[in-house]
Amino acid sequence: MIPARFDYFAPSTLDEALSLLSQHLDDAKILAGGHSLIPAMKLRLAQPAMLISLGRIKSLSYIREEDGQIRIGAMTTHYEIESSARLREICPLLPECAASIGDVQVRNKGTIGGSLAHADPAADWPAAIIALGAELVATSTNGERTIHADDFFIDMFTTALEPNEILREIRVPLPTGTSQAYLKAAQPASGFAIVGVAVNLTRNADGSCQMIGVGITGVGPKAYRASAVEDALRGKMLDEQTIKDAAAHACDGVDANSDLYASAEYRRHLARVCTRRAIEAALRANRG
């Protein structure tokens, strides 16, 4: 499969990339790891006239702690996150989510920023960054702004990024929850999430739920925060029945997708089961 022709630029600085993008808003696409875009181009589902590769901009690959946040450069690969010993200590949800993506080769090349900007409705990262209450830094020739994860995903393959913006950084507030898990019912061939649930929670000294974030991907046209699940657990003792009752709200207000593999009804059922299991898994993985 041969993609359609395109012009290729690989600038070495973000400023150059932004400037190029601003001059070619209608026909340019940003190339990160390419593991969503290139398959789409090979199928000619995408035919951008120009690719602006961020592959040479080394300053976009990092994981660091700064100003009470974990800051991850958009070009950081899934493998770099999966293999980060520091993230395993301070936010194991990120490496756990990374490790569930694709396969070894895909994780070597695919990036967190590319995945988020692509906004595949079955991608794993969106669930995690919503559960973590992350902020995304979008930059353009006009300056920079932060977008909360809850506001980033607009629709299937559509984000809040403007055509002239590049996603530069992902910021996760510290400390993160002491009980975290990512649980996915994976499509057995592709590994993508039929349903993926990320949980980030912290308990009070008496065991009750102090803080909780639940992000769900795969169910609807975009990943979302399961607010009704969170509301049903915040302040409560996390016993089996309470968790089960809360998880029943996993798809409240969500229009579930239906495809060859999973009907909408099955997806809703899976979402409730996976949400319950993800909360239970998070509690078992407690670092508190």
Binding site: M1, G34, I38, D103, N108
Partner: peptide, 22 residues
């Protein structure tokens, strides 16, 4: 289609599917 891995090569020491890279 980036699935089977037959085209895997090492790029700077990392295994990559060379059908999914220009």
């Amino acid at each position: 289609t980036s699935i089977c891995g037959a085209c895997t090569v090492l790029i700077d020491g990392q295994a990559v599917k060379s059908c999914t890279m220009f």
